[in-house]
Design a protein around this nucleic acid. Structure first.
Lengths: 343, 343
DNA sequence: GTTAGCACTCGTTTATTAGGAGTGCTAATA
DNA sequence: TATTAGCACTCCTAATAAACGAGTGCTAAC
């Protein structure tokens, strides 16, 4: 069976009404509220068809219809072709905060959660090809060296290194030179045994200290590799009765508290082309078990050539897709503008 | 009326049973479970007295009794005199993590939440008298300076400063010297207009840049002043029926998500002597509105002379005070040992 | 002082009922 | 042929009632 023009209108009406109310919607409601001028009986016939086709379902006989996952999917897909133009101007707010990327992202998460009444999450962008800009050692006291490592994209990391031997100024000076000659401009994937061996050879007496320093650098870089995720509005899910029962809520909230699992949702596979743009996961489509009763919308932002992060919204399946998608699209362009301006 | 020996035993029995079950406890239960060998009628008489004295109350006529806040308070106070000796050996775990204080604290929070099944929170210790160890500027590129600021207690902060003028090596060198001559060893409260004016005088041509740098330093220091709080196990509160209804849970969880309000609970007044040691807040005693149905136990740790942080546990009023207090006491001594060893 | 006994209270559970929203089907209608 | 009015039927929900039972307070006897 095909989706006739009329069926489409009815299906849309059902889904829209359900998104608003969260209650099963009956034939009479559609008959009255839509501009189709059809009796409830006709609507009923069409609804029977739509059910057979899998777009809607009944929680029980003698209840109205609610959208199935397939129904939501259809709805979302049909939305994507429209150009919606809801505008929420956060650009101004954003510009003030553009100085510090992590504060900015945290702020965006908060804004999104507040604006949508769903839960938001934002990943810190991940530099896949990190080149070392420079490394600098400073002596703090006789047994401590402070290493400052600056990676492309102005990610700054520091670490205190405890060293057994006494440290003199000369050692620091020499190591600074060695480190920078060898590492500057190097992609971190290029730091191999060969490079390290060469450095150690040059370091002579200071090889042990250098080894400590290199360990620290490795550690720091590994750390930068962890995906950091900011979330906001987790408690918003308690506002939706279908999610707020103790068990479900507990699972979902736990996921947000732990954050680890969120990686699967917005951390993975950013580099793959097809995962860019706006993605919608409905119910079982999400890779995270605890969110099987939720819908997730994600979007990818680019802060500079090849450096991506993601933004996501989690809510009930009956979330206001239109608004969420529009909001995210809007946010993305505004972020684009901000980052473009800066560079 | 006085609390007779027998009344004490009955009160204890009531509270203990209620802590376990969370259900009102009746006279017959006490009569059978305790070693008093009294009939339920006698217990009833005593219970009527205890109720009159305010230690227990009835949720409604013909229900058993539950402890009132006063009852809990009495119970907790009586616990404090006992020497409990439950031992949970986390020391070994802790030592591995002692390298990085924030990871350590985060880990402690997790451990506590897991161990107690309540919610835990840990503040990062706050250095009240922060002396600047040193400041170091490095040129990143022509218009960016990287400032690294090390404060006593090895708190390291860095900030990228955008400068309009071109920067040459000489400027950097000169400013480094000025900054360190003036600021090194200075308590941050001592950096006043006078000092700044003197520095600017010395800086000559570089005064504008110096001004930017000082702004950045001020910002960084202000940031270090914020109390950071790690929490864990927030979703645990959903395990307790008396807290898990949507509204209450939402409020409490929101408090943990936002964290701001937690400051009132474990951030404030650490320096005041009487707030050290173990503190128990029951119901309305807590300064945080959303936790009026909870109990909060806090403890203070000292990582070095004069540098304090706090650890807190939040749970239902019927929390297992004995275990929580013992766990915290234990944790405190173990932390003490670890930090003492290190210095 | 303690306890057995008993009437009474009141929340909880279970059963019953009434109401109503919504359906599917059929037959009449345009 | 498509639409619609009508009606019997389903089944959820809310309301009401009844049965239950845990627990109490009080009294009177031990």
């Amino acid at each position: 069976m095909e989706l006739s023009e009329r069926k489409i209108k009815i299906l849309q009406a059902i889904i829209r009404t359900y998104l608003e109310t969260g209650e099963p919607v009956g034939s009479r409601t559609i008959s009255k509220d839509s501009d189709l001028n059809l009796s409830s009986a006709t609507i009923r016939n069409e609804m029977a068809d739509l059910e057979e086709m899998g777009y809607i379902m009944q929680p029980h006989t003698s209840a109205g219809r609610i959208p199935s996952d397939k129904g939501y999917r259809w709805y979302v897909d049909s939305l994507m072709t429209d150009k919606t133009n809801e505008i929420i101007d956060i650009k101004q707010d954003l510009e003030d905060k553009a100085g510090k990327i992590d504060i900015l992202l945290q702020y965006i998460a908060k804004l999104l959660a507040k604006d949508t009444n769903y839960t938001s999450m934002v990943t810190k962008p991940r530099y896949t090809h990190k080149k070392i800009k420079f490394v600098q050692l400073t002596d703090v006291d006789e047994h401590q060296i402070l290493a400052v490592i600056v990676i492309e994209g102005n990610i700054i990391k520091n670490k205190l290194i405890n060293v057994v031997e006494n440290i003199d100024k000369e050692a620091i000076l020499k190591m600074n030179i060695i480190l920078n000659t060898f590492l500057q401009g190097l992609d971190i994937t290029e730091i191999n045994m060969q490079v390290i061996a060469n450095m150690k050879a040059q370091a002579g007496n200071y090889a042990t200290i250098l080894s400590d320093v290199l360990d620290a650098i490795a550690e720091v870089i590994a750390e930068a590799d962890n995906i950091e995720i900011y979330t906001s509005g987790a408690t918003n899910i308690l506002k939706y009765p279908e999610l707020s029962d103790s068990e479900k809520a507990s699972e979902i909230l736990y996921t947000f508290e732990e954050k680890k699992q969120l990686t699967q949702l917005i951390g993975d596979r950013i580099s793959e082309e097809e995962n860019r743009g706006i993605q919608v996961y409905i119910g079982d489509e999400t890779p995270v078990e605890s969110m099987k009763d939720c819908a997730v919308v994600t979007a990818t932002y680019e802060i500079e050539e090849g450096v991506y992060g993601k933004v996501g919204i989690v809510g009930p399946k009956r979330m206001d897709y239109e608004k969420v998608v529009a909001t995210l699209q809007n946010l993305m362009t505004q972020l684009d503008d901000i980052f473009k301006e800066k560079s």
